[in-house]
Computed example of a mutant assay.
Amino acid sequence: MIIVKVTYTVKPEFVQKNQENINLFMADFKKLNTNDFQYVSYLGGDGKTFVHLSHYKNEEIQKHLLQIPSFLSFQKHRDESGLEGAPQIEVMQLVAASQDLFKH
């Protein structure tokens, strides 16, 4: 299992557009209709910091998702928007979960 947490802060005027771009790639992710990954995006209390938490069953599904055109477009627009600092990328390890993350 691969778990990645990405945290970044956008300028206030880009928050709405970033949310729209996230919704676009999430719609494409949902169309895959697979249990091989979980991807969640959050907006922090400051109203401009986003946290993306992704759980991938394996490297194959991770590579596939990261190449989906709407996801690549989201990243491009996010990075070109003038972030308040570089995105923080953290690879994490699962300790415990209240349910199975990947149903067989």
Rank of each mutant, 00 (worst) to 15 (best):
Q88R: 06
H77K: 13
Q88S: 07
Q38K: 10
K11F: 04
K63V: 02
F29R: 11
D36P: 00
K57Q: 11
S70A: 13
V40N: 12
M1R: 06
V15G: 01
E59L: 06
Q93C: 08
L94W: 07
V15F: 07
E80K: 04
M1I: 12
A96V: 13
Q88V: 14
G44E: 05
I22S: 08
Q62F: 08
K11M: 09
F37T: 02
F71H: 14
F102R: 03
Y39D: 15
L53P: 07
V6R: 12
I89N: 05
Q93E: 15
T9D: 04
K103Q: 14
Y39W: 14
D46G: 06
E60A: 14
D46Q: 08
I3A: 03
V10S: 10
K30H: 14
M1S: 13
G85K: 06
V6S: 09
G85F: 07
F50P: 11
T9S: 04
Y8S: 03
I61A: 03
K30D: 14
L32C: 02
D100L: 13
L72K: 09
K63N: 08
F25C: 06
E20A: 11
H77D: 11
N18H: 13
A96D: 12
L66R: 11
F71E: 09
T49F: 02
D79M: 06
Q99K: 13
T34Q: 05
E59M: 03
L24W: 05
H52Y: 02
I89Y: 06
E80S: 07
K31E: 15
I61S: 03
V51E: 14
L65I: 09
K48S: 09
K103A: 13
V10Q: 01
Q16D: 07
F102D: 04
T34S: 14
Q88W: 02
H52G: 11
A96F: 14
E90L: 13
M92Y: 05
Q93Y: 10
H52C: 03
I61W: 01
L94T: 14
K63P: 01
A96C: 09
D28L: 01
F74E: 01
L83S: 03
K63D: 11
R78Y: 05
K17C: 01
A86H: 01
F50E: 04
K17P: 00
D28I: 06
L66G: 10
Q67W: 07
R78L: 11
K76I: 04
F102S: 08
K11P: 08
L83E: 09
H64W: 02
V91D: 00
L65T: 05
V10L: 02
S41H: 06
Q38R: 12
D100A: 14
G47Y: 01
D36C: 04
Q16G: 00
S70N: 10
T34D: 01
Y56R: 01
L66P: 00
I2S: 00
I61F: 00
G85R: 11
D46E: 05
I2L: 05
H64Y: 13
Q88H: 06
V15K: 03
I3M: 07
I2Q: 06
F74G: 08
F14V: 00
T49W: 04
Y42D: 11
G47F: 07
Q99F: 14
L83D: 02
S70H: 02
L43D: 05
N23S: 12
K30N: 15
K30S: 10
N33Y: 08
A86G: 03
K57E: 10
K17D: 05
K57R: 09
G82A: 07
G82S: 04
